[in-house]
Simulated scan of single mutants.
Amino acid sequence: MNQREVGGRFEEQAAAYLQEQGIQILERNFRCRIGEIDLVAKEGEYFLFVEVKYRGSSRFGRPEEAVNPRKQKKICQVAQAYLQRHGLPEETYCRFDVVAVDGRGQLTYFRNAFGGI
């Protein structure tokens, strides 16, 4: 199984988990020229931009640590592109979440993991 397939499997797991929490998945792997967001979802009036990170071991740190300031900035830029593409106003309520999956397949959900837009 290549990295893309592994990532896809954990994105599916994350999406299922979020749906169990009552969160509506709007889009998977939203892409634009700037980059990609793993999951776009909606909870109440909030649009959620969700990054899914998997690490097979803690050798290079925990999965959530990979969502560093540089990655956060890119996610925010892609989120802005999503809002523009869908004709949503800049005042749209947004939240940036992270789903971290460790080598045992243990999922940890970080709501409002970082500020943005």
Rank of each mutant, 00 (worst) to 15 (best):
G87N: 09
I23Q: 13
G22I: 03
D102N: 12
A66Q: 11
Q77C: 06
L107S: 04
R33E: 06
G22L: 07
Q106K: 13
S57D: 14
F10G: 05
N68V: 09
G105V: 08
Q24A: 10
S57Q: 08
N112F: 00
A79P: 13
A41E: 11
L48F: 04
E20C: 09
R95T: 11
G116D: 01
Q3V: 11
S57R: 15
F30T: 07
R104I: 04
F60W: 13
R4Q: 11
R59A: 14
C76W: 06
A113K: 15
F10R: 07
R4E: 10
H86S: 09
K53H: 03
R33N: 10
T92H: 08
A81Y: 08
L26S: 11
L26R: 12
D102F: 02
I34F: 05
T108Y: 06
F10I: 15
R9Q: 04
N112Y: 00
F30W: 12
Q77K: 05
L18G: 01
Q84K: 03
E45M: 05
A81G: 08
G35H: 08
R4W: 14
K74P: 02
G44V: 14
M1D: 01
I117L: 04
N29V: 00
Q106W: 05
E20N: 10
G61E: 10
R55S: 04
V98I: 13
Q3M: 11
F49W: 03
G116P: 03
P69K: 11
V40S: 12
R95N: 11
A100E: 11
L26W: 00
A16D: 09
Q13D: 07
F47A: 10
C76S: 02
A15V: 00
G87I: 01
Q21H: 03
G105K: 01
E11R: 02
A66G: 07
L48H: 10
E91V: 10
P89F: 00
Y46A: 15
R85Q: 13
G103V: 04
G44C: 15
P63R: 15
G8V: 01
M1H: 03
F114H: 03
K74Q: 09
